[in-house]
Design a binder for these strands. Structure first.
Length: 591
RNA sequence: GGAACUGUGGUGUAGCGGUUUAACAUGCCGGCCUGUCACGCCGGAGAUCGCGGGUUCGAUUCCCGUCAGUUCCGCCA
């Protein structure tokens, strides 16, 4: 930098700085060359600053300014001055001042970037990811990273104030049979053996409780080798928390306080506590989701009883076979065309619904292809139950409970989006509690833990662990924000006997349990305290607060949907020598 | 593993329901310009329309396959 020192940031200069001689460094946002007068907007992380070059700048400096192009890296020394009357730019925080350059050094030249370095650009995401270092120069991207930093910092601040200890846990760890697919790392020292990257620090944090840490947290990187989504990346960051000597209410209350703190520090807003609370059964029954979006209504209404008595065989037989018939009232949507209803029918088919029955509430009364199967009293009863008025559209799905929930649960969100029922400024939190302890896996023909196999059953349900697993409820809870699962946790098992029963319930024989989790069972014999915890998705939280549609926009270097890094071209083939050292032979089929 | 959508100069788009010199904006290059801030004006370069095959006299356009991206289902304790 040839002896120059950046003594001011571009974005920080104000009218009160007039007269100062300063040196700024940054990137050329734009050059406006008027022949005898050149303006350069210089950009750094803190903002934009207009620099003026005129003949008084000196011939050499002026001609150098003529050669400057976008994204060149410059060091400029000059004097801050007030802009002449009528040339103030209200769109810039530095719009009242400009710098009269006396010296210009080109610290580095730049090729023309493949896309504009500015907000609101609509470049192809693949191009943005390939040139992520340029994409991240855009102020909106930097704001997202800044917000992410503030959130993580507020978390640390809050937990530190509450006596929590941040402890790091291993990245090279042991593969576990339950849960997501593991990323594996071959061991050179132990031929044929593998480490796994952690899906979460779950067992380590429980061990830390046995160690007497009492209050632990970690901003932990987690890895799951599963397919990606807009809100799912193969590596992601969790705020992982665990506490000893607490019950569910202690944790929920503390986490609400933490969210209040985070929102105060990062969004400058006050959020209301306590959060709404729903049981899993309520959430599924009324909203068709275990992560309900409570910003709008469109609740699911059960019309099974009426449907069972109708002549509509499709409905009646579903009810008689233990299924459900439920509907939602899309208020004011009777205007929907046949085409739109077909679209919605295709939409619910994604979730397994075999059809979408509907009733349009017209001026002439209920109009529907299925109306003829109902006597007037039944139609009236349905309309009454669903609070239907002229202009509304009632839509129904009849199927097994899970299909009804999922299809109508997604449909209500789709209708809310189409009808603009969602206030984008609202942050609506709730807790979902009382999850089932198990769910039945039809492929593996066994019960599996819904949360994870270290989750404590409700005391009164311990007796069902082996006799009637489907009946057991868990001391588990999820925090939900605007229909997105922000975090989840549970009170853990700390009793060796209960833990052994748990393993037995998921059809893990004692020898296997010993082999996989022997250290946990051992630890429980040395004075394990009652404990529980929770983990939050930092990426998702940042996405919601930044009002982005994908977590890729709040991750510096995210993966594409096929789990590749567009910038580094990972994953990649490696040298045969590397494979030999690891005793690995690949068996990729020839195309 | 499956479904849908997308792929045209550097970037963002248009196009033709078969035959065009492939259009527009912006960016880029050159020239002019002392108050602009998405500066302006003049001129110029830049695309075998993702890839492969098929139909046809002729394909950017129609069909099939493939690759890549995105969204979703499955999967994600």
């Amino acid at each position: 930098m040839a002896g120059l020192k950046k003594d001011h940031n571009c974005g920080e200069l104000r009218i009160t700085d007039c007269g100062k001689q300063i040196t700024v460094m940054g990137w050329v946002q734009r050059r406006r060359d008027h022949g005898g007068l050149i303006f350069i907007d210089l950009r750094d992380r803190f903002g934009l600053l207009q620099v003026v070059f005129n003949p008084e700048s000196g011939a050499e400096t002026f001609s150098r300014a003529e050669s400057v192009r976008n994204e060149y890296v410059l060091a400029i020394t000059g004097v801050v001055g007030a802009r002449p009357k009528g040339t103030v730019n209200a769109n810039l925080t530095t719009g009242e001042v400009e710098v009269y350059a006396t010296e210009l050094r080109i610290l580095n030249k730049a090729k023309t970037p493949p896309f504009y370095i500015e907000d609101n650009l609509e470049a192809d995401e693949m191009v943005r990811l390939k040139y992520r270092y340029l994409d991240l120069r855009r102020p909106v991207m930097q704001q997202a990273l800044i917000l992410r930093h503030k959130i993580a910092f507020a978390m640390r601040e809050f937990l530190n104030q509450r006596d929590f200890l941040e402890v790091e846990t291993p990245i090279l760890t042991k593969s576990s049979p339950e849960g997501a697919r593991d990323y594996l790392v071959p061991s050179r020292v132990h031929p044929g053996e593998f480490y796994a990257l952690p899906q979460s620090p779950q067992l380590f944090k429980q061990m830390l409780m046995v160690s007497g840490i009492e209050k632990y947290f970690q901003v932990a990187r987690c890895f799951r080798d599963e397919d990606l989504r807009a809100d799912r990346q193969p590596e992601f960051t969790q705020l992982d928390i665990e506490m000893s000597f607490v019950d569910r209410e202690d944790i929920l209350a503390l986490m609400e306080e933490m969210m209040v703190y985070i929102f105060a520090k990062t969004m400058n807003t006050t959020i209301k506590t306590p959060f709404a609370r729903l049981t899993y059964a309520e959430a599924m029954g009324v909203y068709g989701s275990d992560k309900p979006d409570l910003r709008f209504g469109l609740k699911l209404v059960d019309i099974g009883e009426i449907a069972a008595q109708s002549d509509f065989k499709v409905f009646a037989s579903v009810v008689n076979n233990g299924g459900q018939v439920k509907g939602i009232n899309a208020v004011g949507c009777a205007k929907y065309s046949r085409k739109e209803i077909d679209e919605l029918t295709n939409f619910v088919a994604i979730f397994g619904a075999k059809g979408l029955a509907y009733i349009q509430m017209t001026e002439e009364g209920p109009k529907s292809p299925i109306a003829k199967f109902f006597i007037p009293e039944q139609l009236t009863a349905i309309c009454q139950k669903m609070n239907a008025k002229t202009g509304d559209l009632l839509m129904f799905v009849a199927d097994e409970p899970m299909v009804v929930a999922e299809s109508l649960g997604h449909l209500r969100v789709e209708i809310a989006k189409r009808e603009g029922l969602i206030d984008p400024e609202e942050f609506n939190f709730c807790w979902v509690v009382d999850f089932p302890l198990f769910e039945y896996n039809t492929d593996e023909k066994r019960w599996v833990a819904m949360h994870h196999p270290f989750t404590s059953p409700m005391e009164e349900d311990v007796k069902y662990l082996l006799s009637d697993p489907g009946k057991a409820k868990a001391k588990a809870y999820d925090m939900v924000l605007n229909g997105v699962e922000l975090g989840g946790g549970s009170i853990r098992i700390y009793d060796k006997k209960v833990q052994e029963q748990m393993f037995a319930a998921i059809s893990m024989d004692p020898a296997e349990a010993r082999g996989k989790f022997g250290y946990l069972l051992d630890a429980f014999e040395y004075g394990a305290p009652p404990h529980g915890g929770i983990a939050f998705g930092l990426d998702r939280m940042t996405m919601l607060l930044a009002k982005k549609n994908t977590i890729r926009d709040v991750i510096a270097f995210p993966k594409t949907q096929s789990a590749t890094c567009a910038m580094m071209q990972a994953p990649s083939l490696v040298d045969a020598k590397q494979l030999r050292e690891l005793y690995i032979k690949t068996t990729v089929p020839e195309k």
